[in-house]
Design a protein around this nucleic acid. Structure first.
Lengths: 338, 338
DNA sequence: GTTACGTATGGCATCGATAACATAGTCTCG
DNA sequence: CGAGACTATGTTATCGATGCCATACGTAAC
């Protein structure tokens, strides 16, 4: 080991590398990046010096002088329940990482405008180059406008800010697919357990359901609102169990769907014998619980990745909503002959 | 507005604020942070100027001059299946946020030493002040040693690096609790569907199971290895279904447990009538699927938070393993009289 | 044989905040 | 009432990399 042990632990800087390699700091900088004009021989010397000293560039300095943080911020909701969360995260991180970007996260405990403002501020303070909001925007304040004006932002739901581009999975389509499947089986009416009304996803799925029923000339029954959790599905399932002629239910999430199923069975209704149920998400358990759940699968991973692409490559790639597809399992069947 | 509108959109700097407030930049800096010695009057002027200009501090500059990034890195596994992931993330982010730290994430696609090295490098390059590894370390390379020597690191499983402090949920305890519950019900033998062997969590749960059986004077049957997913549980469940005298199974995750249940039922074994099953995690669906699953609940959120505390407050808080508790539901029952 | 241009490299200012030191006042106490 | 301590503020150097401009040397062109 040639390294002096005197200095306790200062990270070597570019100047140190330059000295070791016998060139200027500027040349080191060039050699370590693009650099159309660096002698291959020189570059080799520089890289050797880097290796020898264990040099690691200082991100802060780089950001300060270049003005680019190469970091994008991701706003998430803390709620453990919502399945798409981790898939979106993974997609964002993968796409960002591939482009050489880091991902910094800001979690909000619940849907709240104040918390949202604070998260965006936090990310803005960190100097992120772009922001992906994976949470529905319930309202857009002046402060949020200010931030998203300066920093490119993509929201993953259908809400719109002045400057935020919008990307999202086509949630209406999910509602339509699910409902149509039940109608195709022969059901005359389809009930709906929706997500919380603040969620644009929830509203869109509900609209898809309504439109599909309307197209079939059916008047939609009042939707029952849940909060995505199995427990809320269970509670609304208890309500549904008291209504005699329910034969088909579309739940806005798989977890709620299983809650509904449990409530119905406890009240003596069989699934799919008496009632057919469709969920949304296609969580891993959907195929293994009892009964295996028919559900609408959506590619959140891809959607997260697309958000980043949109952010980095600017417009262009955009607007292509990731589409939904139906996984048909045993929780749906034709209605019993009456 | 005294500011010239010529400059299109440069973020205002501290100097600008100082000028507007009629003080020096240093005073602004002091006013905006701790600052025991700033005249309240002056501070008010500064804050007014900040407000007026829409000043937002430049993180990179702050990091560069202070040497502290106020960011901690979090290493995650991309696998959607593993439930604890999002809970840990939330805990880490909450605790970090409270302490004024940002969280930067690095996801690895699978357990692989090379990928792990790259993630750590990435985080080190970003200049994080600390790292939380929420993934089992299958092996520790020289490079990883180098990085974790410079940067305080906490791993959330039981593995040890030279300098990484270790925090973790007591996984052995989880295995013991689950197994003991089954023995207490009167079962004479408990089978085990484990997680992948690279996971320390999996090994520890298996050890807990083995020790518990040993303490009861029972020779443990060979464990069946899964990968945490419902599908792997299903496949091992098919194996179990072919063995006549299986009456109790401990699965190392809830998702695998449901896979096992499905396979057993398809082969005509009822749960809990013929076979009792215990899982681990207490996912939201555990209480609502059929049958409701008896499972070992562990507080991953708290564990993530504890990791951050350990990182920031140094030692001291440490070593308190978050403990496990049993949620008893309908998937377990005494064995049928034979 | 100049002019013009391309390549490889070095020098210096700069990004924006902070640390360390310096400097006026103000207060306290023997 | 002058020394020492404390308060509030300003000055200057510094963190580490990059942008811009300058320079030295070839080399192709007219």
């Amino acid at each position: 080991m040639t390294k002096a042990t005197a200095r306790p632990r200062r990270q070597p800087s570019m100047a140190d590398v330059a000295r070791t390699a016998g060139v200027s700091a500027q040349t080191v900088s060039r050699a370590l990046r693009d650099s159309p004009n660096v002698n291959p021989e020189t570059r080799k010397r520089v890289l050797a010096a880097v290796e020898q000293l264990g040099y690691r560039f200082n991100n802060a300095a780089r950001v300060l002088s270049s003005g680019q943080s190469h970091t994008i911020g991701l706003v998430l909701l803390q709620s453990g329940g919502y399945y798409s969360r981790s898939a979106v995260t993974a997609g964002v991180e993968a796409a960002a990482g591939e482009a050489g970007y880091a991902v910094s996260i800001a979690t909000i405990a619940r849907l709240d405008t104040g918390l949202m403002e604070r998260s965006l501020s936090k990310l803005a303070d960190q100097g992120v180059d772009g922001i992906v909001i994976a949470v529905p925007l319930i309202s857009v304040t002046q402060k949020m406008e200010d931030i998203t004006r300066d920093i490119p932002t993509v929201t993953l739901d259908g809400s719109r800010t002045a400057s935020a581009r919008v990307l999202g999975i086509d949630q209406k389509e999910a509602g339509r697919i699910a409902t149509q499947h039940l109608l195709d089986l022969g059901h005359r009416q389809v009930w709906h357990v929706s997500g919380p009304d603040e969620w644009i996803e929830a509203r869109q799925r509900r609209e898809g359901w309504q439109e599909c029923l309307a197209a079939a000339g059916i008047e939609a029954p009042p939707p029952l609102e849940g909060d995505w959790s199995p427990g809320s599905g269970y509670r609304q399932g208890q309500v549904l169990a008291m209504i005699p002629d329910v034969t088909a239910v579309f739940a806005a999430s798989d977890e709620m769907a299983f809650g509904v199923i449990r409530a119905l069975r406890e009240r003596g209704r069989s699934v799919p014998g008496d009632v057919s149920i469709v969920g949304v998400d296609d969580i891993a358990l959907a195929a293994y619980c009892h009964p295996p759940l028919t559900t609408v699968r959506q590619d959140f991973y891809r959607s997260g990745a697309a958000a980043v692409a949109l952010l980095l490559r600017g417009a262009g790639a955009g607007d292509s909503l990731v589409t939904a597809s139906l996984s048909i399992r045993e929780s749906t069947a034709p209605p019993r002959r009456s």
